Simulated scan of single mutants.
Amino acid sequence: MSSNIDTPSQIPEASPLGKAVTYCDHYNPSLLFPIPRQQKRDEIGVAAGKLPFMGVDIWNGYELSWLNSKGKPQVALAVFTIPADSPNLIESKSFKLYLNSFNQTRLDSVTALRELLVKDLSQAAGASVGVQILGVDRFEGQKLAELQGHLIDVLDIEVDQYSPNPDLLGLQLSAEEDGEAPVEETLVSNLLKSNCLVTGQPDWGSVQIHYVGQQINHEGLLRYLIGFRQHNEFHEQCVERIFTDIMRQCKPIKLSVYARYTRRGGLDINPFRTNFPQGLPENTRTARQ
Rank of each mutant, 00 (worst) to 15 (best):
N4L: 14
I5N: 03
I5S: 01
S9T: 13
E13C: 06
A14R: 13
L17T: 08
G18N: 12
Y23D: 12
Y23G: 09
C24F: 05
D25R: 15
D25I: 13
F33Y: 15
P34R: 08
D42Y: 07
D42T: 10
I44V: 13
I44K: 02
G45R: 09
G45T: 14
G49H: 13
L51H: 12
G55L: 03
V56E: 07
V56Y: 05
I58V: 12
G61K: 03
G61D: 11
S65F: 01
W66G: 01
N68I: 03
N68R: 06
K72E: 11
V75Q: 13
A76Q: 05
L77R: 07
F80C: 03
T81V: 08
I82G: 00
P83C: 07
D85K: 08
N88C: 14
I90S: 01
I90A: 03
K96S: 02
N100K: 13
S101M: 04
F102L: 10
L107A: 05
L107V: 03
S109A: 11
V110L: 07
L117K: 01
V118K: 00
V118S: 00
V118P: 00
L121C: 09
L121Y: 02
S122R: 00
Q123G: 04
A125H: 01
A125N: 01
G130V: 06
Q132R: 15
I133E: 08
G135C: 10
V136E: 14
V136L: 12
R138M: 11
E140S: 15
L147M: 10
G149R: 10
L151C: 12
V154K: 12
D156P: 07
I157P: 03
D160V: 04
Y162N: 11
Y162Q: 11
L169S: 04
L171Y: 05
Q172C: 14
A175W: 03
E176N: 10
E177G: 04
G179F: 00
E180Q: 15
E184G: 04
S189M: 12
N190Q: 14
L191I: 09
L191K: 15
L192C: 04
L192N: 00
L192A: 02
N195T: 12
C196G: 10
V198N: 05
T199E: 13
W204E: 02
G205T: 04
H210W: 08
H210P: 01
Y211E: 06
Y211D: 09
I216Q: 04
N217S: 07
L221R: 08
Y224G: 06
Y224V: 11
I226Q: 06
F228C: 07
N232K: 15
F234R: 04
C238S: 12
V239T: 09
R241S: 06
R241N: 05
F243G: 00
F243L: 01
I246Q: 00
I246P: 00
S256V: 03
S256P: 01
S256M: 11
R260F: 02
Y261N: 07
G266Q: 10
D268M: 04
R273P: 01
L280D: 13
E282K: 13
T286M: 11
A287D: 07
